[in-house]
Amino acid sequence: MAIFSLWVINKAGGLIYQRNFADGLAQLTSNEYLVLAGTLHGIHAITSRLSPTGSSSGAQVIEGETFKMTILLTATGTKFVLLTSLAEATADSVLQRVYEAYADAVMKNPFHTPEMPIRSEGFDTRITSLIGTGQP
């Protein structure tokens, strides 16, 4: 039960926010995170085309052996990705609350340029109070 990391990916596939919480995954450079976010953006588009039955959303949960990535795609195309342990059951609700914080502290901020990296202390504070150190 741990939350490792939070990513926010804009609708063009650029990583606009990335923050680590609990330890347990590799520490990568910001450049590597950017590449991974772009890859995820592409994969997400392809997964919706591979549906064997009717139309499908893109990938919502991606699982490895020790962690999973839960992806929330908003109506505007922004993706919120939460990296957690496999047993973490609250990932979906945490992502909903991150989206709320994003709407309040980022989109309502007159100094924020849409689709650009998020540099907002208010958002950081809200995320800290929401996730903390990522440990239960």
Binding site: A59, E63, G64, M69
Partner: peptide, 19 residues
């Protein structure tokens, strides 16, 4: 998955709304 975990960890599955 290998890159993020930093280990020799396998990707096991992903889920969308329909499969």
């Amino acid at each position: 998955v290998k890159k993020i975990s930093g280990r020799d960890e396998q990707f096991t599955s992903y889920r969308t709304s329909s499969y």
